[in-house]
Structure formats: structure tokens, C-alpha cells
């Protein structure tokens, strides 16, 4: 194994390492942090990880955007980036925005009712 292949491997696996890091960071944030806003941020970080995971599968070095009419006419058909993961990621981003908006608006209501955002104190429902 020469230096070039090692470098290529690092290139290939960097996005996935980022994905793992993002997901673990997000989970850590959700579990360890006590402030609801920070937990919601943690969910968003996990979501970014999931989105990056999706999009990383559709990309190849040197590929062009999968828009047929806008690409150069001499583009090799095999050189387009895979469009499906991009469509999936867009959908997932939209869902993520809706989820975050809903959770934040509920957090506002919780703050009004309970006067705190500490999850250890938002435990009226238990037992």
C-alpha cells in the first residue's frame, strides 16, 4: 500500500468519519445536556449527520450536478452525481425544519408554564 492509496482511502472515508462524529456528538448533547433548547440542538446535529450520510453516498470526485439541461454537452453520463440521495436529503431537511420548529414552539410553552427549561424539573408526568 503506497501513500497515494492511503490518501485516497482517507479522502473516501472522511465524510463517514464526520457522520459518525456528528451523530455521536448529537447524542451526547441530547443525553448529557439539561437545557431543552440544547437537546433540540442536539437533535438537529444528529439530523445533519444523517443528511451528510445520505448525501455522501451520491457523490464521486469530479462529478457534475445531475441537471441534464444545465450540464456541459460533452458530459459523460456516468459522471453525474447520483440524484436520488440529493432528493432524499432535501426531503429530510424539510422534515427536520418542521420538527425543530414544532419542538421549539413547545419549548416556549413549557417555559411559560413551568418557568424553567431544565428537563430534570419538567417531570410532572411520571410514575
Amino acid at each position: 500500500m503506497n501513500a497515494e492509496t492511503i490518501l485516497e482511502l482517507i479522502y473516501a472515508y472522511t465524510p463517514f468519519a464526520c457522520v459518525a462524529a456528528l451523530i455521536i456528538l448529537g447524542l451526547y448533547c441530547c443525553i448529557v445536556r439539561r437545557n431543552i433548547i440544547k437537546i433540540i440542538l442536539g437533535v438537529s446535529v444528529i439530523e445533519s449527520g444523517a443528511n451528510l450520510f445520505l448525501i455522501a453516498h451520491g457523490y464521486r470526485t469530479g462529478s457534475v450536478a445531475p441537471i441534464y439541461t444545465l450540464s456541459p454537452s460533452d458530459t459523460n453520463p456516468l459522471n453525474y452525481a447520483l440524484p436520488i440521495p440529493q432528493a432524499l436529503t432535501l426531503t429530510s431537511i424539510v422534515i427536520g425544519v418542521a420538527v425543530a420548529a414544532l419542538m421549539l414552539s413547545l419549548a416556549i410553552h413549557i417555559y411559560r408554564k413551568y418557568g424553567t427549561l431544565d428537563v430534570r424539573k419538567i417531570t410532572k408526568l411520571k410514575g
Binding site: 441530547c30 443525553i31 439539561r34 437537546i39 428537563v119 417531570t123 408526568l125 411520571k126 410514575g127
Partner: peptide
């Protein structure tokens, strides 16, 4: 058993993971 139902959402997440 009743004590395990803490009502704390981070505990729920720990159970999930």
C-alpha cells in the same frame, strides 16, 4: 419499577440507546 419512570426525557433517550 415506579422509580424507573422518572419523567426525565434524557433518561428515556438513554433507555432507547
Amino acid at each position: 419499577t415506579v422509580g424507573a419512570h422518572t419523567g426525565d426525557v434524557t433518561d428515556y433517550l438513554i433507555w432507547y440507546i
